[in-house]
């Protein structure tokens, strides 16, 4: 073996980088998000699995439809729950707390939607 004085430190750096998530987390998986269930309503605007995975695309579809195509602002689910197709006065009417609902998941998944630059989040009751 030659040049081990340079190769071994290089390999240690390599293994250190590859194992970054292991030593960064230190064996602690952290808290799993528990979004608060709405008290007022029984069902969401769509199937719950669909909402979990695709709610951001649904919001964009609403926005495009309403703002650009002049689509309807109210709608109803197959089971007849009426709702506003709106971020502020739709989602946030049932999911009354941004902190206890949207943010729990988003902090976990490390996303920061910029919607709230303009849209107003409901007042947090503490």
């Amino acid at each position: 073996m030659y040049d081990l004085g340079k190769i071994i430190p290089g390999l240690i750096v390599f293994v250190g980088l590859v194992s970054f998530p292991i030593w960064y987390n230190g064996g602690d998986a952290g808290a799993i998000p528990k979004p608060e269930k709405p008290v007022l309503a029984k069902e969401c605007v769509a199937d719950i699995q669909y909402m979990r995975t695709t709610h951001m695309q649904l919001l964009m579809a609403w926005r495009d439809d309403i703002v650009r195509e002049g689509g309807a602002r109210t709608w109803a689910t197959a089971r007849g729950t009426e709702y506003n197709r709106s971020l502020q006065s739709g989602c946030m009417k049932c999911h009354t707390s941004k902190k206890k609902f949207c943010d729990t998941c988003h902090e976990y998944a490390a996303v920061t939607p910029y919607c709230w630059d303009c849209h107003i989040a409901p007042q947090e009751t503490k």
Partner: peptide, 8 residues
Amino acid sequence: MRLFTNPM
């Protein structure tokens, strides 16, 4: 790494 670290 956002999927592998908590918190990121």
